[in-house]
Structures are given as C-alpha cells and as structure tokens.
Nucleic acid binder design. Sequence first.
DNA 1: ATCGATCATGCACCTATTGTGCATGGTTAT
DNA 2: ATAACCATGCACAATAGGTGCATGATCGAT
Lengths: 315, 315
Amino acid sequence: MHNRCMIDARLITLRVFARCGTIGATAELTGYSPSAVSAQLRELQRVLGMQLLTKDGRGVRLTATGRFLVAGSDTLIADWESLRAAAMQAGDQVQSHFGLGGFSTAAAQLLAPLAATLRTTRPLLEVQVLEANPARCFDLLVAERIDLAVIVAMQSDTYAEDDPRFEQTVLLDDPLDVIIPSDHPLASRETVTLQELASEPWITEAAGSTYHSLFTAAFTAAGVTPRIAHEAVEWETQIAFVGAGLGVGLLPRLAPLRGAENVVRLRITGRGKPSRRIVAAVRRGSITSPLIQESLGILQLSANRILTARPEDDL
Amino acid sequence: MHNRCMIDARLITLRVFARCGTIGATAELTGYSPSAVSAQLRELQRVLGMQLLTKDGRGVRLTATGRFLVAGSDTLIADWESLRAAAMQAGDQVQSHFGLGGFSTAAAQLLAPLAATLRTTRPLLEVQVLEANPARCFDLLVAERIDLAVIVAMQSDTYAEDDPRFEQTVLLDDPLDVIIPSDHPLASRETVTLQELASEPWITEAAGSTYHSLFTAAFTAAGVTPRIAHEAVEWETQIAFVGAGLGVGLLPRLAPLRGAENVVRLRITGRGKPSRRIVAAVRRGSITSPLIQESLGILQLSANRILTARPEDDL
DNA sequence: ATCGATCATGCACCTATTGTGCATGGTTAT
DNA sequence: ATAACCATGCACAATAGGTGCATGATCGAT
C-alpha cells in the first residue's frame, strides 16, 4: 500500500473500482493484483462496517452505500489536495514525486521536455511519465498514479468539464494542418482550404478512435464530406501513407513531421479552420500547488515554441 | 496502524503531537511506543516531502508547515466524519466499533448503562468505555481512540466551545446537592440554602482540580465565603468525611450516595442554585451518525431518570 | 560542574499486515 | 457444451510497521 495521499489507499481503490466496474480492471489500473484489490475492498467494508459491494452476475457491483461513499469522497480528495498544495506553498517545500500522463503526441512533444526541464530545476524531484490515452489519463489521476495529465478536450467525453474530481486548464488550441504528397499540385502552396481538398482521398484514424470524431467534426464545420480511403492508428503510419501518395491527411501542428519523405505540411485557411483543444487536467484542489503551476507554465511555453516554429522550420 | 478512519494514521498522530508537544506524550495517548511515533512522523515527512518537525532543545517542535497542515486537517477530518455518518444513514448500515469516554461519574452513571443498552440493541457492536478526565477526553477524540465523550463543561477549558474539531451538545444541567451528617440540625429538612450553611466546615476537592473552580463559583454566586476544612479527591472519600462528621460538602446529583452511613443529601434552594453542565462531545461531522444520535438519546434518557429519582429514592 | 531526569532516535528483532500466483467455482456468451 | 471471464480463497512471500532497549543530547537542580 503505497500511500502518497493522506486518504486511505483502500478508499482510493474503491473509487477506481467505481469507474472500472470490475476487480480485474481496477487491479490493472492501480497496479495491484486482482486478489489484492478483492482483499482491500473486503477489508474496507469490514473496517467501515458498511456493505459496499454486491454480487452481480459473474462480477460485483457497488451498493447504494458504496456509490454514496464514492461520490462523497470527491470533496474529501479535493480538500486534501488543496491542503497539501497550500502547505507546500506556505512552507516553501519541495515535492518528492511527480507523475505525468499524456497521449502520444503530448507525451513526446510536451511531457518529455517538461520532465527534462524539471530534472534540472528540481534535481531532487522524481518524475515519472506515462503515455496513456485521455480516458485512461483521467483514470490514472483518480488512481493517484499521476498528478497531471495532458489530454485533448473531447466534447463527447465521459468526463465532463465540471467533474468534481478534476480541474482543467486550456494549454493551447492545436491547429490541424494538412499533409499532402510533395508531388501534389497544391504542394507549393503555403495554405489551402478544406474545400480545395474535398475530392482527395483521405487518410484518417479508425472510426471510434480518439481523433476520428475530431476529423469528422473538422469536415462538417467546413461543409465538406471527405472520402475516406485509408485508416491508420499512429501519426507515423499516416505520414507514411501520405508519403507513398495514397492520399492526404490531417496532422496536428504539435505532431512533428520529422524527416518524412515526400510529405508537405500546409496550413489550413478559410471556413472551418480546425483545431484540437489541448488541456491539462489535475486533481481538484491541486491546481494551486507550486509544482503544478510551474509545470503548467513550462508546458504552455514549450507548446507556444513548437507552434510558432512549425511548419516553417519543419518542412 | 489501526485505521478506523480513512485519514492516514500518521496524520492523526501528527495532530495528536500538535496538542501534546512531545513524542512521549503522543505515544501514551495514541497507544503507540515512542519509537513508533517517531518513525511515523519521519515517514510522514518523507512521503509528503515536507519538513514538519524541528529539533528544539531536547524535544521537537512543529514547523510552520506542520502547524499549517494540522490546522488545515481539521476540516478534512470533519468532512470525513460527516461523510461516514451520511453513508451510514443512507445505507442503513451498522457500525462495528464504538469508543466512549467520560469522567468518573459520567463513566459509571451514564456510559456504563449506555454501553449495556447498546449491547442489547446492537449485539454486533463492539463498545469500549474509557474513563478519563475532560481534557484527556478531547485528546482521545482527536486521537480517534473514542468517538463520543461525556464531560463537564468548563468555562476555563483549553478547548473552546467552537473548536473546529468538535461538536458539543448539552446533555443536562446536573444540580449540586448538599450532603451533611444525618445528625446535623438541618438533616431533617428537605431543602437548604447555601447561606444557611455559610458557617459550616466544608469539604472540597484539592485546589486546581477539575471541580474546585465549580465549587468556588457556586459560593461566589451565593455570596458566601465557605471555610474549607478538608480536601478529598473522589466523591467516595468526601462522602466518608461527611459521614464521619468532619463537615459538609457539595455532591452532584448524578453521583450516587449508595449505602453511605450517616449522610443525608439535601437539595439547594434560594439564591445561587449551583449546577454543573454536562455535555457530550463528538468529532465534528459525526454528530449526524445514527449511532451517535441514538447514544445521545439514551444518555439524555438515563440522565433524566437518575435526576428525577434522586434524592428521594436514594436517601 | 555534576548528576539525574527527560526526550528523541537509532538499531535489532519480531509480528502481522498486505501483497502475489495459482486454483477454484460461478456466470455469461458462442 | 465449451470457452471465456470474473471474483475469491488459499498457501506462501515480502515488507511495512511495531516493540524494547541503548544511546546521545539537553535541561534543571543541587
């Protein structure tokens, strides 16, 4: 039981379970074994004298009491976080451990530099970076595995913007650029409109993936219905597809083109200039922590630096 | 580390230390050994990455950060207590452990019957009663050793009535009776005034004891300056003194005369009818707990029963 | 100054809490 | 029917967390 928080680890586990719904998933997320989670929850019920779980089919389910407890514990966690942050500030203290989480692009482009910076400014701080998709990032925050997450804001997220467990601050609006083969007629242009690319074969992520809704949203905003020719999971793959002349695609400006062959990045202008909003999320209450504040500043700085540098330097 | 609370036991220990000021006293109060307390606090500092203690002479002292943390944790504890209470109510759950504390008379006359009643109404509940003076009762509440304390309200207490850590409810005003030898000229009376007893030799507790201030307050209110002839620590001793004809004394109506020889209990009338206020104290937030509520009801009931029964039945 | 009292802490050792891995039994989907 | 999945019990292992004693440091009183 590795308690970095002052709230009983078993209660944290219960909160994670409330999200996962199964012991196994809770175990995976918390880093315990399923038996350990099972034992923890049983012990928790014994100590509190409350029945929190009921058998339900082949799994278990929260009782009304359990749901009540989980919901009520939100403010408890938030209060602790803000107390800790305030104490840190008041006493000019330094944190010893700091967990960061973010989706692929963010992890590589924002979190890695942040970690590097913190390593020099705060040599005693033990920084850990976890790559994870936005949904999992929130889960990791709840599980206290990470302290700060960088995610793309999705309107259709399970996590509402005003979730009592989190506080979110906008880091940047990451514009989507178009990548096209360098032998494409439009390749010499500096900017294009989506309308100009309406008839092109498009490459996107698999339907249902994190960015697919972003993709479609961009085109509906532009009043264009794209023809989806290919699907790729990672940016690298998509870039390679474009480089091979299979079609064109959208690439967030934050994502680097690296030394991709035969691929040109163009800014989009005109109606429906698409972008993805990137936000930082922390546990509610911890936003005032000096370390969090410093990190947010660094993140914003490097985000701006990257945005202004591209695509010019990168082409 | 016996966590009945969801707040880290080490933080509780820190809170106790904040009151005691020394590791040894903290150990005594929490039930740990001094080494354990020392280790806990060291570990707490490591985990939180905060310096909470400083060497100070041959002891240790809280840093500013430490004081800040302790002060801020008040609301955290209170929030947890009220959450637990609400969950108990919401889910119709039963508590498994219940700690009671009270000063001698209360322990014998109020808490013992309460414990007995709870044993029958809630067979699964494990009740523990601790006899302790009022000041220690508050400390035991902070240390989470007990959940409910019965104490005499003292205006000159270190614990203010609006301490953020506690909630107090008046149980009863316990009138002080006079006990006199049965061969005393006034022994056949039903009631007396303090003025009538002005010239008697009085028996009281040692100066500085819990009730001595109560004693003097009673007489100043009556406009009488008593002649203190003897001092006793326990009621039993005082009663014996009176029975031996050494003088007269004040006895709370709650305190039983038992089969005391040659002693008569008289009600006091007239100006300055003295009484002591007996209140129940709980950790803030827990007042809405069903168990606490039930207990308060039972306490009030048995208090009233005892008060109306005496002195008639008891003489 | 000296001695004893008080206080915190380190160390060796022990305990029991809490974790893992595997096997089992119940439940659902194919 | 069979396979997949899920929770849990059990044997075992790791380790966090406890006690008791010895040590060192500080303070007060003689």
